Computed example of a mutant assay.
Amino acid sequence: MFVHRRDVQIQWGDCDPANIVYYPRYFAMFDDSTSIMFEAAGFSKQDIVRNYGLVGIPMVDTRAKFYIPSTHGDWITIETRVESIKRSSFEVTHKVFKGGALAIEAFETRVLVGRDPNDPARLKSTPFPQEIIDRFMKG
């Protein structure tokens, strides 16, 4: 299974007045991590949109469990992986490690969407291309 890891340093603007990362900032990091994972697997967002006629890959569900806080200057490692792929949706997990300890577990469901061929003003889920499935599921 394909896994992408990246190190991120917590910046001043990520933190609230208590100097703890404000939780929505993590969700922005997770969104970036999903895009970066696709690119690391050889599928940039621009290529996917162009090659498969997609409009985007919106998030339709997300949640997180927070165990250890981070503050300005800390380094964290975000480990991102596709856990499962269905017809047009997929599940992504993000594990955040701080100093080797699990700090956060986050989960998202995303859907591939394109234009509805019967009404181009509407969006419609799009089946997952087999080559992308193969890359993420086989590693």
Rank of each mutant, 00 (worst) to 15 (best):
V3S: 11
V3W: 04
V3R: 14
V3T: 15
H4A: 10
H4V: 06
R5D: 06
R5T: 13
R6F: 07
R6S: 10
V8T: 00
V8F: 03
Q9E: 10
Q11F: 12
Q11C: 11
Q11R: 15
W12D: 04
W12C: 09
D14G: 02
C15N: 07
C15Y: 06
C15P: 01
C15V: 02
D16H: 08
D16A: 04
P17N: 06
P17G: 09
A18M: 11
A18H: 08
A18Q: 09
A18V: 04
N19E: 05
N19V: 00
I20G: 04
I20N: 00
V21D: 02
Y22L: 09
Y22K: 04
Y23V: 03
Y23R: 02
Y23W: 00
Y23I: 02
P24G: 00
Y26G: 09
Y26V: 12
Y26N: 11
Y26W: 13
Y26R: 12
F27K: 06
F27G: 02
A28V: 14
A28F: 03
M29V: 12
M29N: 04
M29A: 11
F30E: 12
D31A: 15
S33H: 05
S33Y: 09
T34W: 13
T34H: 15
S35C: 12
S35V: 09
I36Q: 09
M37F: 10
F38Q: 02
F38Y: 05
E39A: 15
E39V: 05
E39H: 01
A40P: 07
A40W: 08
A40I: 00
F43D: 07
F43W: 05
F43M: 00
F43Y: 00
S44G: 08
S44C: 00
K45F: 14
Q46Y: 08
Q46P: 07
Q46R: 14
Q46D: 14
Q46A: 15
Q46H: 13
D47L: 13
D47T: 06
I48K: 02
I48P: 10
V49G: 00
V49N: 12
V49M: 14
R50W: 00
N51I: 03
Y52L: 08
Y52M: 00
G53Q: 06
G53R: 00
L54K: 02
V55P: 07
V55A: 06
V55E: 13
V55Q: 08
V55L: 03
G56F: 01
G56M: 10
G56K: 01
P58N: 09
P58S: 06
D61C: 07
D61P: 05
D61M: 12
D61E: 15
T62H: 12
T62P: 04
A64L: 05
A64V: 02
A64Q: 05
K65M: 05
F66S: 01
F66A: 07
F66C: 10
P69F: 02
P69T: 03
S70N: 13
S70Q: 11
T71A: 14
T71I: 11
H72F: 15
G73V: 12
G73A: 11
G73E: 10
G73I: 11
D74H: 04
D74F: 03
W75S: 05
I76T: 06
T77C: 09
T77E: 08
T77G: 07
T77S: 08
T77Y: 01
I78E: 01
I78H: 01
E79G: 10
R81D: 01
R81A: 11
R81C: 04
R81I: 04
V82L: 11
V82D: 01
V82T: 02
V82Q: 07
E83P: 03
E83N: 12
